[in-house]
Simulated scan of single mutants.
Amino acid sequence: MMPERSDDQEWAARAAAGDQQAFRAIYRAHIRPVYWIAYGVLGSAADAEDIAQETFVVAWRKLPGLQLAGTSLLPWLATICRFQAANRLRLLQRDRAHTADAVGETVADVVNVEDQVISAELAERIAEEVGSLSELDRAVFRLCAVEGYAYRAAADELGVSHAAVRNRLSRVRTHLRGAVKEVRDA
């Protein structure tokens, strides 16, 4: 199930106090979106996996000082991820600059701050919208969109029909697209 707003806050407080189970819950809840953010910046599955892991290592170290101002940890994790990915891009650029066969290749050495702010706003808005869904819709979204379940497997897990999962996920995606459009148009 997608984390409830209070789940992130509770998990963060427990993890900050050293509770590894709580941190595992944070990891399980947010690893997929963090991975996709890294992949979007880097365009490489291997680098995205590394950066996603590094994001959670940094988060573990920073949790004791975190003042969770929002409802979700995702915008905070997304920011850490983007900075880690930008550092990786700079490292790749340096490495390629020192490689003789890198003639003509370019890697951006800056990350657009405006894009980062929009991405953080977007992640927060998506987290808010997902949090406002019914329990069943959140479960369908988590299983199909986050964890990659097939409709039939999600239906079996939730005890509903295949059509119910398909229709609910379609409505949730349409709803989220509207929220994304609002943030981008703002």
Rank of each mutant, 00 (worst) to 15 (best):
M1I: 00
M2W: 13
E4C: 03
E4Y: 11
R5K: 13
R5W: 12
S6Q: 11
S6V: 14
D8K: 04
Q9W: 13
W11V: 06
A13T: 14
A13K: 15
R14W: 02
A17H: 01
D19I: 03
Q20A: 12
Q20H: 02
Q21Y: 08
F23V: 01
A25R: 14
A25T: 03
Y27I: 05
Y27D: 07
R32L: 13
V34I: 13
Y39H: 14
Y39M: 12
Y39G: 08
G40Y: 03
S44P: 01
S44T: 07
A45E: 06
A45P: 01
A46E: 15
A48L: 10
E49Q: 15
D50C: 07
A52L: 13
Q53S: 14
T55A: 14
T55S: 14
T55Q: 10
T55M: 12
T55H: 11
F56P: 08
V57F: 07
V58Q: 09
W60Q: 06
P64C: 08
P64H: 07
L66C: 10
L66S: 12
Q67F: 07
Q67L: 11
A69I: 14
G70C: 10
S72I: 05
L74V: 08
L74F: 09
P75S: 07
W76Y: 12
I80Y: 09
C81W: 14
F83C: 13
F83I: 10
Q84K: 15
Q84T: 02
L89A: 06
R90A: 10
L92D: 03
Q93K: 02
Q93S: 03
Q93P: 00
R94N: 08
R96F: 00
A97S: 04
A102F: 03
A102P: 00
V103C: 05
V103I: 12
G104I: 09
E105P: 00
E105T: 09
T106R: 14
A108S: 11
D109S: 15
V113L: 15
I118Y: 04
I118C: 02
E121Q: 14
E121P: 03
E121N: 13
E121L: 05
E121S: 07
L122W: 06
L122Y: 09
A123M: 14
E124G: 11
E124C: 07
E124T: 13
I126H: 04
A127H: 05
A127G: 06
E129P: 02
V130I: 15
S132E: 14
S132R: 15
L133E: 06
L133T: 09
L133R: 07
E135S: 08
E135T: 10
D137I: 01
R138H: 01
R138Q: 07
A139K: 04
F141V: 00
C144D: 00
A145T: 05
A145D: 05
V146P: 05
E147N: 09
G148D: 02
A150V: 01
A150F: 02
A153E: 02
A155S: 04
D156Q: 12
D156W: 03
E157W: 00
E157S: 01
G159T: 05
G159S: 06
H162K: 11
V165Q: 02
R168Y: 02
L169M: 09
L169S: 00
S170R: 07
R171L: 10
R171K: 13
V172Y: 05
V172E: 01
V172F: 04
V172K: 03
R173S: 08
T174Y: 08
L176H: 04
G178A: 14
G178F: 04
K181T: 00
E182N: 10
D185G: 02
